[in-house]
Amino acid sequence: MNHELPRAAAAPVPVLRLGDVLLITLQGDLHDGTAEQLQRDIAESIVRSRVTGVVIDISGVEIIDSYLGRVLAEIAAGSRLLAARTVVAGMRPAVAITLVELGLTLPGLRTALSTEAALELLAEPADRPHREPR
């Protein structure tokens, strides 16, 4: 068995800035170290560029275990302390089913169907009053 790690798994994840939102696209299988590095990079970027939102596109992620789940929850909690809102977008059905079965429902995490939906969500006023019908 070949023990050279593919480049993609070890390379840092790029953090893009789009107006006042940071856009991060996760792909494939994330190595633990890469995930931790990303957590630090996002916090630094928020402070440096004063963005108000973070969108993490996970439509290319095939598995989320409790470690990566915890990293995502911590990114959201950390961003909140820096006055930025985090939305995790595009989770695959198989990943969602597995997370729930694992017991990880991530209640503090905001989610959206796609990156576009996430950007729309962030464009809304921070604490939009929830209108109940009738």
Partner: peptide
């Protein structure tokens, strides 16, 4: 409840 939680994780 599992179904509800999974739907929410997907963003719906």
């Amino acid at each position: 409840m599992k179904t509800v939680a999974a739907v929410r994780l997907m963003g719906a």
